[in-house]
């Protein structure tokens, strides 16, 4: 007689995974964030973050960097995704692949190559740290913006655009009133996938010789100084920021979830 698993039993491995790798670390972070070095519960870390001009400066710099990177990615990705989704070209999956393929090459290798190119153009990377970081991040995160938008556009019922044109809309009006509004879920998940990593991925900055701290490097610096409490608080603040952005952007949950699918 074969043994049949119940639903509950089948959920056990995932529940365990969640417990060990998601819930437990979160509990640890929260408990560290809300305690001082003496072990007592306090909001000192929180107050410390917002009163320290250095950390606030880092937060602002990260936000700026993430904002510009996201904007650049969006400006490049949308036309590309649009062209890929609606053009008549035969091998569009191949062209899509060309944009995705850099993801298959090791991240540091890619950045090293980019660094060489930028050095060739600019002479010294130190002259344009912010610009270089934006270029590096945009290069890195572009596929994550293209894919969700492409998926959304490609899946769109083409007869909706025909209907708009049939009802008297010219090409610009079709785009502004139908195509773009319907692609917003894809844009939102693209932004979510680019904006948040752009705030924390300090490896890009380090490799491009930008010594300014962003949120990721800030947390790292606290941890390497054994300040688990301060570092955890910053992680928690970042987590809160992520939650706020997701809630702001994710009004249409269901479609957003589908738009987020990568392949």
């Amino acid at each position: 007689m074969k043994y049949r698993f119940t639903r509950k039993q089948l959920a056990i491995p995932y529940a365990l995974f969640l417990l060990v790798f998601v819930i437990a670390p979160l509990v640890v972070i929260i408990s560290y964030a809300l305690t001082g070095s003496d072990g007592h519960v306090s909001l000192k870390n929180l107050a410390g973050f917002f009163s320290d001009p250095n950390t606030m400066g880092t937060l602002l710099y990260s936000l700026m960097l993430a904002l510009v990177t996201t904007a650049v990615c969006l400006l490049i990705a949308y036309p590309v995704a649009y062209a890929l989704a609606f053009s008549q070209i035969k091998r569009r999956s191949v062209i899509l692949l060309l944009f995705i393929m850099p993801m298959w090459i090791n991240f540091t290798l890619r950045l090293t190559a980019l660094k060489e190119i930028l050095t060739l153009i600019e002479g010294n990377l130190a002259f344009h740290p912010f610009l270089n970081s934006v270029i590096g991040m945009s290069y890195d995160f572009l596929p994550f913006m293209i894919l969700p938008i492409y998926n959304q556009l490609e899946r769109m019922d083409k007869s909706l655009m025909e209907a708009a044109s049939d009802l008297g809309a010219d090409r610009k009006q079709v785009f502004l009133r139908v195509t773009f509004p319907l692609s917003i879920p894809g844009v939102v998940s693209g932004i979510a996938m680019v904006f948040l990593p752009a705030m924390t991925n300090y490896v890009v900055l380090e490799m491009l010789y930008n010594s300014t701290y962003i949120m990721g490097s800030l947390i790292g610096s606290y941890f390497s100084a054994y300040d688990w409490h301060g570092g955890s608080m910053i992680s928690l603040i970042l987590l809160a920021l992520i939650c706020i952005f997701t809630l702001l952007g994710g009004g249409n949950k269901e479609e957003n979830a589908r738009g987020g699918s990568l392949v």
Binding site: D157, S159, A163, S165, D166, L167, A169, L182
Partner: peptide, 19 residues
């Protein structure tokens, strides 16, 4: 182009704008 024609279409799958 379609938008310049005084002709309107009822589509097979309706094509109502979901938004």
């Amino acid at each position: 182009p379609p938008n310049k024609r005084p002709i309107n279409t009822v589509f097979q799958r309706y094509a109502l704008f979901p938004h």
